[in-house]
Design a protein around this nucleic acid. Structure first.
Lengths: 170, 170
DNA sequence: GGGATATAATTCGCATCTTAACTATATAGC
DNA sequence: GCTATATAGTTAAGATGCGAATTATATCCC
């Protein structure tokens, strides 16, 4: 389902449940667009900035993470990390170095430029997030609980009637 | 901001607010992946299916909509609609026909195949949505209210300190 | 030691999104 | 009628997402 999908259907398929689900998409999309706009003004993308925060805050003693670690921590497919780090390397934000012990790994580190840009942008981003928090703490807790409930259900329940074997012939 | 972003940061930047925001992304992403998996088993994408539902349910008397109408109703950029309808046309789901009155328009309609596939998949999708609704109706209402509150705030508040003019030099 | 297995990264093909520029067509106002 | 403006659709360039296949490297187990 798209993040921005049939919000204007005249005949909602199910009344409230569907509205709640679509609201999640719509809200996530609004927040995403907002963040895009923010980071874009610094020549970054949201994903790039999040990689930089990862590297900046928990890049280990030497400040580096493997692509697999980045992939796992950001829940982004490995295949995407390759191109993402390519672009960030080209932009001078990070650099790949060879791992000493295991030649399968790349160690990705922030460059000096990446570090200074992070130091400049992160406080503003934190301020953004703070101002975006319109909900009371109690509401926030409630929201988190509800979303986790939804997520657990979505993850654990098997797909219904999922038998693509017999396709409709054209 | 990615839908699947730094959920595992060891040092959350702001405690609860940030967690709530990230939860929205994460949940939306889970739901999206789930829907992707569902539609994929029928050779469709989520967006394609939503176009089919649009055309099937409110394609007007003759069952057709212009690309601009589809774009507006699905909140999808016009530029994306072109390629989307291209792919759906190639897959035999829809067809473009010329509008009689205004030669700028295409009228997009479901093909017979598209209509039959919709008739088959939609009930299963509705069942999916129903089962996905783990929240009580009262909770759903609450959730909707909170999400709308967040969305309004995100949309209306100006970006802070957004002055990209003076870039950090490398 | 050597073969089977697992992991890290890359590559490929494809879908989707954005913005911006472009073409063709309508329409409104002088 | 003619020019300015608006609208519909297309195209292009770039970022991101996915799954699947490939390559290089480690590791495990016999």
């Amino acid at each position: 389902m798209s993040l921005q999908t049939d919000l204007h259907m005249k005949e909602p398929i199910t009344p409230l449940a569907r509205e709640a689900m679509l609201n999640i998409y719509h809200t996530a999309n609004c927040i995403k667009k907002r963040a895009d706009e923010f980071f874009r003004s610094y020549g970054l993308s949201d994903v790039q900035f999040n990689v930089m925060m990862l590297l900046g805050h928990q890049g280990g003693a030497e400040g580096g993470l493997s692509q697999a670690q980045i992939s796992a921590m950001m829940l982004v497919n490995r295949a995407n990390i390759t191109a993402l780090i390519d672009r960030m390397e080209k932009a001078g934000l990070v650099e790949r170095t060879a791992a000493p012990t295991d030649r399968r790994y790349n160690i990705v580190k922030l460059t000096g430029y990446g570090r200074s840009l992070l130091a400049r942008v992160e406080p503003l981003y934190i301020e953004e997030i703070k101002q975006a928090a319109v909900l009371e703490p109690a509401e926030q807790k409630q929201l988190i609980v509800m979303l986790e409930k939804i997520r657990r259900n979505v993850s654990e329940r098997p797909l219904i009637n999922n038998k693509p074997k017999t396709e409709i012939s054209r």
